[in-house]
Write a protein that binds this DNA or RNA. Sequence first.
DNA 1: CTACATTATATGTACCTACATATATTTGCT
DNA 2: AGCAAATATATGTAGGTACATATAATGTAG
Lengths: 152, 152
Amino acid sequence: MKKGSIEEAIRQPNFKSEYQKLAVNIFYTSAWLGNRHRDLFKSFDLTPPQFNILRILRGQKGQPLSVNALIDRMIDKSSNASRIVDKLVEKKLVERTTCPNDRRQVEVRITLEGNELLSQLDPFIDSMDNTFASLTEQEAKTLNTLLDKLRQ
Amino acid sequence: MKKGSIEEAIRQPNFKSEYQKLAVNIFYTSAWLGNRHRDLFKSFDLTPPQFNILRILRGQKGQPLSVNALIDRMIDKSSNASRIVDKLVEKKLVERTTCPNDRRQVEVRITLEGNELLSQLDPFIDSMDNTFASLTEQEAKTLNTLLDKLRQ
DNA sequence: CTACATTATATGTACCTACATATATTTGCT
DNA sequence: AGCAAATATATGTAGGTACATATAATGTAG
């Protein structure tokens, strides 16, 4: 079993097919990467989905987003955005106000405090991306292309 | 934004780098694939980690595994194997007995019922793997190689 | 042989996801 | 206008993960 391979990671030397191995490899790699992210966010008292929402809101440059619009942009669409926003409101990182035009909707907006927290995180996120230094940019591009193709 | 791309999936046209896009793509693809698996297992009243443990135990061909040995072989190592085994015991799909040589350990073993359930699932799992029909075997191999390399 | 560290598992808590259902508001139909 | 369908969000519950801590059994140093 090659060092660093998925076979070694889960002590499973024989997969039925290259496709089955790929499924396991995707789950395993996602968990591996997610754990690194989680460790980073932890020192800022954020969880990955909380960070995801904060970063989406920052991208809005002050404009609010509804809960539905947040879900639309989230990595894990089955996240319960409503309750994650709850936590962020408690920490005063976002504000929630009822939309005046459509009172079913809420407008979620990042606060100054939220923006400052993200600014502190930025350099760490950037260097986290260099986690991938073992891949060339061309290899990263190939991975992106093939992952998109897989989901077709 | 290309159809089926990660950019489209999370409505994010600009990534800082190919590496940052790759991180998001891995998380998104893992969730996408995981949801398909979950849907399949659901009709058999199993969750993905429950299935993972059952399949590991089947691979033992009757030999038991300790909880630690299970974690070692699981895709998500931070799973709480102890509590997942609880659920499987309740459903009589596995048995748990104290190890006579080392009474700290428990021996977990798949039951006949557990094996039968997996047999019923087998054909569905096989056809699920063909979810990847959009990739050639060579492309799957490339993905596996690059994912292993990424984690180095 | 006793005291202490180590190991294997279990449990408590906070947060998250999955799914079903509830509540409030708006839209559309007649 | 009046009422049903659609929409946006919230909430209850079960299962799961992350992390700290507890409990029990074993190993080990002196």
